[in-house]
Every structure is written in C-alpha cells, then in structure tokens.
Design a binder for these strands. Sequence first.
DNA 1: TATGTAATACGAGAAGTTCTCGTATTTGCG
DNA 2: CGCAAATACGAGAACTTCTCGTATTACATA
Lengths: 215, 215
Amino acid sequence: MATQKADKAAIGEGALGAARPRLAPTQQRSRERFEKILAAAADLMAEKGGEAFRMSDIVQRTGVPFGSLYQYFPDKTAVIGTLAERYNAVGRECVARDLADVAAPDDLYPALCRIVDSYYQMFLDEPVMRHIWQATQADRALQALDEEDGAFLSGLLCEAVRRVAPQTPDATLETFSQLIMTLAAAAVRHAITLDAEAAGRFLGLFKAMLPRTPP
Amino acid sequence: MATQKADKAAIGEGALGAARPRLAPTQQRSRERFEKILAAAADLMAEKGGEAFRMSDIVQRTGVPFGSLYQYFPDKTAVIGTLAERYNAVGRECVARDLADVAAPDDLYPALCRIVDSYYQMFLDEPVMRHIWQATQADRALQALDEEDGAFLSGLLCEAVRRVAPQTPDATLETFSQLIMTLAAAAVRHAITLDAEAAGRFLGLFKAMLPRTPP
DNA sequence: TATGTAATACGAGAAGTTCTCGTATTTGCG
DNA sequence: CGCAAATACGAGAACTTCTCGTATTACATA
C-alpha cells in the first residue's frame, strides 16, 4: 500500500510529489551530483541539527551551484524528504524482517525486542537519522510522509500480532502497536536498549506495582 | 534546580537567557502588548503549525510594530520559548501534584495513570501545546529548554519511585522514568489514554507474551 | 567528423524573511 | 512646565530560498 514509494523518491521528488516536478538525472555526472548533494545535506543536518542548514552551505560544500541544485530538487524540503524516505525504507525493511518469522505467541516478544534494537542500531549506524526525524517532525509537508510510514509499520505489527493471537481486540492492537512504535522511538531518543534484561526489569517493576489480572 | 525558571521566562527571555536581554515591560500598556503578542503567537502556531508563522503575522494581528515587538522579545525563538516555558510550568505542576501523594507501592500505578491523563487533558485544554512541542523539537535553542524540563520531570518520577521502593537499582529507575515520560508523550501524540482498562490490556498482553521472572 | 537538438550548468538577482537602529513620542517626576 | 528615561515606530539592512535567461555540454544522426 505504502510500499512502492521508495523508487519514486529516489528521483528527487521528496516529500510530496505535488511540487513542481524535476527531471531525473540520467547522465553519469548528474547522478553523482545528486548523491553528492544528499550526502552534504545529511552531513549538514547532523552538524547543525535538523533543517538548520542553508542551501548555500550545500552549494559551497558540493560546488554544485544553485541553478543545478534546484534542477534536481524542487525545494529544500525535497532534499530532506528524499533523505527521509531513503532511511525510512531501511526502517521498514528492518521491521518487516524482524516480524516475518513470527508464527507462535512466544515468537512475538523476541521480535519486538529485535525491532527496537534494529531501530536503535540503525540510528547508531546512521546518526543523521535522528536529525532527519527531527526535521520531518517539524515540517508539515514532510510529516505526511512520516505518518504514512508510521501507518505502514503499525500495520505490520498488527498483522503479526493477529497472526499469533487472532482474538486480540482492535483497541488493544492499536494501543499496542502505538506503544511499541513509541518504544522504538524512545530507544532512539533516549538510547534505551530493550534487551532482555532491561525489559525484564521494566516489566518486573510493573508487575510488582500492578497486581492486576489480565482481561 | 530547574524550578525557579518560570518567573524569569515571564519577562520574555525565552529559551536561552544568553541572548541580548530585553527590558521587562513595566508599564500597563507594555504588559498588555506583551500578552497580546504571546496570544497571537499561540493562535498562529495552532493555525499554521509549529514555527511556520511570520513575525509580520504577529505585527499585523496585534498592531504592535516590529520595533516594539523586538523590544519585548530578542528574537522569534524567544516568543516560542516563552510560550513553551509557560506551558511546561503547567506540566511540571501537574506531575508534581500527581506524584505528591505517592507513599506506598500501590499508590504508584494510579499516579502514573494520572500523569499520563493529566498530560493528555492538558493538551486537550491547550491545543497549542502540540505545536509548541513540535517547534521545540526542531529548534536547538528550544531543545535545551525541553531537555531541562524533561530532566526535572524525570527527577520527580525517580524520587517518587525511590520513596516507595528504595532498593530499586539506578538503571531500572532511569529506564523506567524515560519510558513513562515517553508514554505520556505518546498519550498526547497518539491520543492514547492510559486508563486502567487499556493499561491492563497492554500489560496483560505483555504478561501473556513474556513468562519471565522479574529480577 | 560535422551539425542540430536536447539536456545540463550557471549565478545574478527577485522575492520574501528576520531583525536593527536612528528618530519621534510618551511617561514620570521635580 | 521642562527634563530625562522609557517606549514606540517603521524603513531598510542582512540574510534566506528559489527563479530565469543565457551559456555550455552531451549525444544522436548523417
């Protein structure tokens, strides 16, 4: 549903294809420049934080002049959006892989740990992602992309849970997937690893505090 | 530690007192204008989302010209920062109140539910807050303010847990408070209420999935 | 190789922000 | 009333993002 978005964005349409379209860079040199721009943008986002970089910074670093830059990308958000979509695709793949093998109820918990860890690892590997997430949260156009992405991931999660516990009520699923995605985000933001020990401690605390019976 | 910040910010120093200071509006008219500016900014943030408003919008709406505007606030982030600090103060009070009565282990869980609900309610009452949070996440200067606030809240939480479970290890406390703050944020972002039933379902699911023994 | 056409390169400057600064006005007070 | 300090003001300085007309390069075809 939201799956075949990656290829489109690789052409440089960024957040919303609605914006005035740009030609895909077909020639060798163009493609190299295209990537050079993205690389510079990623560096700048990491250095200055979020979208607090200037298009002129890119011009200066890459040597690609304004005119050319704007031939590849319709505007600044498209640069960020292209990066975001690229990284999000990686994230989607991770989650899909982590959930693929879930067949029995007991598979679910390790899978969730893996998701959180995958995200965390992804952010360790690509520190830019943090800033991209930041930027995409602030910009409305980019946010749309993010929500779509979130819906996709949440869909995967629900599907996996349903596979092993078909009777789970909708509300539970919804809350559950939101919380898991939130945990993944928290893992990234606060450098929490949800390894077995930490999770055990956390849940243990809850258990100790809450002598409730599950419904 | 970060407690006596509210009064300072009310003078209009906004995010970082470091910026060139402005005089506090002492006269009647000044104070009115000061508030008028903040009100307009709040409306604009809600309307246009985050920091996507123009200073000229404020000028137009309030009738306060640029010169005067910048007499009260050193820059745009100070306007947002003042609003943020004002709302954060409300949040801190809520949390402090919700945790004040925690004396026995059994008090903790309802208190946490209340925290999440308080935050949620706060956002229902003041829809601007969502956009302020957005803005503060994107802007580095404002982020600092946010982190300080987060540290303060996390401190309150740790204190409360320690009060009823003094032997809790540091790592657990840390993870725990981060997760609770994250849950509160999630409650706001995704309209989750952590009422007893939902929490029970969530924890029940976890319990069902995780036949682990607490440490 | 020569030639025509389409793709690409380019950067001065248009358009739109935030914020400043010198001047005019108001307020408080002896 | 007259003086000093606080406040009001808005044109424009400084800095953005992005455009557009022109120059240059790449490629197909003969």
